[in-house]
Design a protein around this nucleic acid. Sequence first.
RNA 1: GGCCAGUUGGUGAAACGGUUAACACAUCGCCCUCUCAAGGCGACAUUCACGGGUUCGAAUCCCGUACUGGUCACCA
Length: 486
Amino acid sequence: MKKVRTRFAPSPTGYMHIGNLRTALYAYLIAKKDDGDFLLRIEDTDQERQVEGATDIIYNTLAACNLNHDEGPDIGGEYGPYVQSERMKQGIYAKYAGMLVNMGKAHVCFCKEEDIQAQKEAAGDKEDSFYYHDPCKHLSHEEVQRRMDSGEPFVIRQNVDPEGQTSFDDEVYGTITVDNSTLDEMILLKSDGYPTYNFANVIDDHLMDITDVVRGNEYLSSTPKYNLIYEAFGWEKPRYIHCPPVMKDEQHKLSKRNGDASFQDLVAKGYLPEAILNYIALLGWSPAEEREIYSLEELTKAFDVKRINTSGAIFDVEKLKWMNGEYLRRMDDEEYCKLVTPYIDQAVKKPYSRQAIAVGLKDRAMLLNDIPPMLDFVDELPDYDIDLYFNKKMKTNPEISLESLKEALPVLESLEVWDRDSIHDALIGLAQSTGRKNGVIMYPVRVALSGKASTPGGAIELALVFGKEESLDRIRKGISKLENWE
RNA sequence: GGCCAGUUGGUGAAACGGUUAACACAUCGCCCUCUCAAGGCGACAUUCACGGGUUCGAAUCCCGUACUGGUCACCA
């Protein structure tokens, strides 16, 4: 069996959007599942749509996701070059286009774009469909030569015999059959000498020994035209794996045109690349087992083309959020602390232990960017409202809280060691020795320490973050605040 | 408009002719609890776009209708 080779073939036109990334992921998984090669090819045949820096975004995104390619413009390979504009300069496309012309499978066309367009529009009113019969097909060899010599602009256009049907098997959508009469004769080589996407794609996929073509399902209807080229050359056709779209809502695809979230936007918002990748793997594909969290390596094993869906999937940021939180929670503490420290630093300038803060964050922050606002009480005790001391469930109110804080203060002051156990024993001991609920003591202390209704951590965790001196200071402030209120 | 494809809950989805129509997110309860989370438990589609048919039996097969998407570029 031939070694499986897939490719990701983006055009460098801007940010990497989610649907695009997912196609890359699937192509990667299909190759790696069978120990095959995954390659990157840059399709820059449209000179007008080039965007500066777009190629770097592609490299960076793939690298961030660990979708490492085996061959590509940046790392080379035996099938190079991997950039289509460079391949064009080597005359590759012109050569194959010429071969097709000689075989009678393509022809030189001098028709003007506007003329064809006008013809289509005129016909559109009367006929159900319009199939372009290119008159240039019947031009004599001499005339073609003469007009080319005279410098008249031309394109190379595919020949399609409108008789009969063409069908192909897609791994996802099954067998698809179309009437040849509905196939336009597509342009292979543009008048600027560049190949069209369609043509370059076929030539390169063949030349690079691509066995599995993975792409969006918008190509489903042009696939028969691709196959005509394979057939003209007598080349073996690849397996086709067309993927359903990733949608923004029921009727719109996720697109960069609309400014929808790109991979880098999500990363900037605090999503982990691994979580994003895991989530999008599940959009349009489902594993055979009841599990949703998969590392890239695990995905590689579990992935199965047969389980790719045929209908579009809506991108649900809520579920991504959950998954991101899941990834965060599963990290070991040390790793988590390292990851999160830059975000803590955004909100906390004082030298409190990052690790002590991270402990409280771990089960609470689903997004990295949620972290700074959660810590806005750390450097400065906010000027909080006295009503915070009311809590029905904890059975506290300002009077009870004042009492609790007054009792807690000396107990904590007398502590020789300021660690988790001693603080815990002191506070809980206080509550239990007087037969009160833990919350009656703990809740007011937590409020006094933070001045907030909710915090990443309870009284003990916060006391640990602040240390003895600052903790006692905040409790004293709480006491005086309550006293003044009365 | 022609052609191609899709249609299971708010979302991702399972099911490959016979199940109480999995599971996960979200939502809503309850429990746990020093807040909030996390965690635990439970609720949530009498029904699989609609209408016919085939069959003892259909979300699953067939036909039609509706709706949605794609395509019909010297864009990819």
